[in-house]
Design a protein around this nucleic acid. Structure first.
Length: 191
DNA sequence: TGAATGATCACG
DNA sequence: GTGATCATTCAT
């Protein structure tokens, strides 16, 4: 299991380092394990794409809290988004999990798995992650959602950097390349 | 390209 | 209170 200290770093570092790690969801007796292949960093209060850019509010207060806490919010009236808070207490930053890649499955095709896990709102639906996870630690197993380390080191050449999705309103921050993907994954949400 | 669909935020 | 907006997805 990945420990709290892992998250006590800049969001950009954590976002890259999470690639290749595994998101584990335990529902009843069943365990779903999926490799993280796409993340975005929301780096601090100055980042105009971040919920924290206009100060602390009821919704984003988790981002100001301890590293490794789960930040789940509801958007577009339809979707939940899964984030992990990074950096020291009091500094609002987080990493959005945008896509995960489950192990091959005998019942579902790759195309069907993509529809379930390739996209920030899709994966929360597939893994039954909702607001009840908000402000819970990801560095403990008891809530049924935690992370495991990658199996092998990810070489920098296997990581691709791109602009973040859906942040056109963010002025000069919309063009920051703070989205990170595993190059060889078929499960990236957007090219 | 636009609808779905409701919490959140700024304003006053 | 009200109205605009939204770290998206899906169907047209």
């Amino acid at each position: 299991m990945i420990k709290q200290q892992f998250f006590n770093r800049s969001a950009i570092k954590v976002a890259q380092d999470l690639l290749g790690c595994f998101l584990i969801r335990k529902i009843g007796g069943e365990i779903i394990k999926a490799k993280i292949v796409e993340t975005e960093a929301y780096v601090g209060p100055h980042d105009l794409a971040s919920h924290a850019s206009r100060g602390r509010t009821a919704r984003n207060t988790v981002m100001f809290g301890a590293p490794g806490m789960i930040y789940v919010y509801f958007t577009y009236g339809l979707h939940f988004m899964l984030n992990i808070v990074t950096g020291e207490i009091g500094y609002p930053a987080a990493v959005l999990i945008r896509a995960v890649e489950p192990a091959a499955n005998s019942r579902l095709t790759i195309a069907e798995l993509k529809k379930l896990f390739s996209g920030p709102a899709r994966l929360t639906k597939a893994l039954a992650i909702d607001k009840s996870f908000n402000n819970q630690p990801i560095f403990a197993k008891k809530h049924g959602l935690w992370l495991e380390n990658k199996l092998t080191v990810i070489k920098p050449g296997r990581i691709c950097r791109a602009t973040r999705i859906g942040v056109d309103y963010a002025g000069k921050y919309k063009d920051k390349k703070w989205r990170f993907c595993l190059k060889d994954s078929k499960f990236i949400s957007k090219p």
